[in-house]
Simulated assay, not measured.
Amino acid sequence: MKEDDTNYTPELDYFDDWGLEEETLPTLYEHYAFTAGKGQEPLRVDKFLMNFVENATRNKVQQAAKEGNIFVNGVPVKSNYRVKANDVVKVLLPHPPHNDLLVPENIPLNIVYEDDSLLVVNKPAGMVVHPGHGNYSGTLINGLVYHFEHLPNNSSNRPGLVHRIDKDTSGLLVVAKTEEAMLHLTQQFFHKTTQRQYIALVWGNIENDEGTIRGHIGRHLKDRLQMAVFPDGSHGKEAVTHYKVLERFGYVTLIACQLETGRTHQIRVHLKHIGHTLFNDERYGGDKILKGTTFAKYKQFVENCFEVLPRQALHAKTLGFEHPVTHQFLSFDSELPQDMQACIEKWRSYKTANQ
């Protein structure tokens, strides 16, 4: 498992690589490892981990410390240990048994295409794609294993999954039904031959009608729940996003984004980097009024928009790839979900009324 200043990977394991015997760990654990950055000021390890591990509560972290499952530089520590620069912090958090992670659930799926090799699903906002810490049920995969038997596992043991989109992003995903399809589709995403277009509503009036955002994306150095752009390439991985303005509403802009790469939160963090955070993107500050006036009526209008669209304004609208068996290039399109349509219409009406 790689450990650096910007990236970490949660794993499910019995931790024999930590020198722990399998029989001492009757349940699976999720483990995380971090290396504190050079600028890390002394901070209690429980607070440090709560900042970096999504859905980790203070009680869970402190319980892990009591059980001797928090290690700093290989030594178990108490929850009041203060993390310093370059400390290597590891934690084990109890995980439900593996079988519980993949309990089939009768979750309705919006399938827009299906054949013997694959299916394309239109995922609603609010649905997590795969089980993880704090999200053990109600995911897309729980629904997939209910509706389809013998889905192939990817390298992370996630049946059928070739790529993913964020919980609060809606839109199209392709799912592999055979090993052959899994391999072929995974290679297409790796070699960047798929075509994906997202529709986004962003804060501010984007200056250029179209453009390209380039900048390595990696885990934020201080807030591990966020990603960040590193233009000098010192951290993270290369990421490229192309955008085109579709409609301007003054204080917000509707754009289309084309992905060359598929990094975590890529569109969200790239657009924030250029000063145009996604509308109502809570994690990246888009749930605040970033552009506009101080008038009470305007504030009420924006709050009404937030209520209509209670998530980041991002939808995976189109998806194109080569079929793994027929080699025909397939293209799929999806309607904007009702919440995004309603929010866009509100801004369209606001612009008309204030021209």
Rank of each mutant, 00 (worst) to 15 (best):
R268T: 01
R268V: 02
R268I: 07
R268F: 09
V269T: 12
V269E: 02
H270G: 08
H270E: 11
H270Q: 06
L271W: 13
K272C: 08
K272W: 07
H273G: 06
I274C: 07
I274E: 01
I274K: 07
H276F: 11
T277K: 08
L278G: 08
F279G: 09
F279H: 07
N280D: 03
E282P: 02
R283E: 04
R283P: 04
Y284Q: 07
Y284A: 00
Y284L: 03
Y284N: 05
G285Q: 05
D287C: 09
D287V: 05
D287T: 00
K288M: 14
I289E: 05
I289P: 13
I289L: 14
I289S: 11
I289F: 14
I289Q: 07
K291L: 10
G292S: 14
T293P: 15
T294H: 15
T294W: 12
A296G: 02
A296N: 04
Y298W: 15
Y298V: 14
Y298T: 12
K299I: 12
K299R: 15
K299T: 13
K299S: 12
K299P: 07
Q300K: 15
F301S: 00
E303C: 03
E303P: 04
E303T: 09
N304C: 02
N304K: 11
C305L: 06
F306N: 05
F306D: 01
E307V: 02
E307K: 06
E307R: 00
V308K: 12
V308Q: 10
L309R: 01
L309F: 07
L309Y: 03
R311S: 03
A313V: 08
A313H: 04
L314F: 03
A316F: 00
K317F: 03
K317R: 13
T318H: 03
G320M: 04
G320R: 06
G320H: 03
F321K: 09
E322M: 09
E322T: 09
E322A: 05
H323V: 10
V325I: 05
V325T: 13
V325S: 10
T326C: 10
T326F: 09
L330T: 01
L330P: 01
L330A: 00
L330Q: 08
L330R: 00
S331E: 10
S331L: 02
F332R: 08
F332K: 07
F332T: 04
D333P: 04
S334F: 07
S334K: 00
S334D: 01
E335C: 03
E335F: 06
E335T: 10
L336Q: 00
L336N: 02
P337L: 01
D339H: 08
M340Q: 07
M340L: 13
M340G: 01
M340D: 02
Q341G: 09
A342R: 07
C343Y: 04
I344Q: 06
I344Y: 06
I344L: 11
K346P: 06
W347D: 08
R348I: 12
R348A: 14
R348T: 12
K351I: 12
